[in-house]
């Protein structure tokens, strides 16, 4: 756990170090108005002071270190959710992102050295490519040094299929509703409307959009029947996940945690996806391709039994 947190977080501190060292040690070689933003052809189109550079490099380094440390350490690797090693994947991404940002930030500072003003500064076009290249290499090293995460739980216990006769029709439906999601939506919406009133359209649009999204998507309706699995997300059912019975290899139920998915919502992890509104009982469907789909819903055992009965095999 601790080792994974360090492997996830430390690269961002290391990546920020060269930039910060140059910024502080070579302070007098840098112009007061530093070039901070560059157009696609490498010419400068934005400026910032020395303090902003230091703040940004330090803030990004520490902030991302914390975020990735949590990401790499939190997800207890649940074999039920995905057969892939999700925490190891998080460490790989962390190393790649750290390397990319480290190269870009260092380059943006280094090109300012020995200039009296940021106006004449250009960023070599290959900086971006170099950043991507270093990111790929660093990601690869990250993958190699990251420990294989032991499975905290193995494939969940099989669920006995519900026997369904040839003439019988069966339909299981259940709704998961979570209160805090629409509450957050209402708060965001109120904030967005306030911003709109005082004339800050950018922030207002973003907040109103987030507010409406959260307000509408605090619930999910899950249906299991002869056709397979149908998951309707939100009051309007704008998002629909449908897994036909022919595509279902097995179905089972297990307790899951949003941490295994890196958060709440419609989540993708290597080897699977899920609609995760809370922690607790969830229906887990394995497709014929081996990919898994998880949806948090009560009485998931019955749903798994229905899908098992429909597909005519034990899970």
């Amino acid at each position: 756990m601790m080792r994974r947190a360090l492997l996830g977080g430390v690269p961002h501190l290391v990546a920020a170090a060269p930039t910060l060292t140059v910024l502080i040690a070579e302070h007098e070689r840098l112009p007061v108005r530093m070039a901070s933003h560059f157009a696609a052809d490498g010419t400068v189109d934005g400026y910032a002071g020395h303090g902003i550079f230091v703040g940004l490099a330090a803030g990004l380094g520490v902030g991302l270190a914390v975020v990735f440390a949590l990401l790499a350490a939190l997800p207890a690797r649940s074999g039920a959710v995905s057969r892939q090693d999700v925490p190891r994947f998080a460490i790989t991404v962390s190393w790649a992102v750290a390397a990319f940002l480290g190269v870009i930030q260092y380059a943006a500072v280094a090109v300012n050295l020995d200039h009296t003003d940021g106006a004449g500064v250009t960023l070599p076009r290959w900086t971006l490519l170099a950043g991507l290249g270093v990111a790929v290499v660093a990601g690869g090293i990250g993958w190699l040094v990251a420990p294989r995460t032991p499975l905290t739980d193995h494939d969940p216990a099989p669920v006995t299929p519900i026997p369904i006769s040839d003439t019988e029709q069966v339909s299981w439906t259940r709704t998961t509703a979570v209160v805090w999601i629409p509450v957050v939506g209402a708060v965001a919406l109120a904030g967005g409307l306030a911003l709109a009133v005082v004339g800050a359209p950018g922030g207002a649009v973003a907040l109103i959009l987030i507010g409406v999204l959260f307000l509408l998507n605090g619930r999910v309706r899950v249906t299991a029947d002869r056709r397979g699995l149908t998951v309707l997300v939100g009051l309007l059912g704008l998002l629909r996940v449908r897994i036909p019975a022919e595509d279902i290899l097995s179905a089972t139920s297990a307790d899951v945690s949003p941490a295994s998915f890196g958060g709440w919502g419609y989540r993708f992890v290597p080897g699977g996806s899920g609609v995760i509104l809370r922690s607790g009982p969830a229906l887990i469907v394995t497709r014929r391709s081996g990919r898994r789909f998880t949806v948090t819903v009560d009485d998931a055992e019955t749903a798994a039994g229905v899908l098992g009965g429909v597909t005519g095999r034990a899970c």
Binding site: I164, S165, T167, E168, S171, T302, V306
Partner: peptide, 9 residues
């Protein structure tokens, strides 16, 4: 909620 119907009944 589980609903089962059988037209044969």
């Amino acid at each position: 909620m589980l609903i089962r119907v059988d037209p044969a009944r």
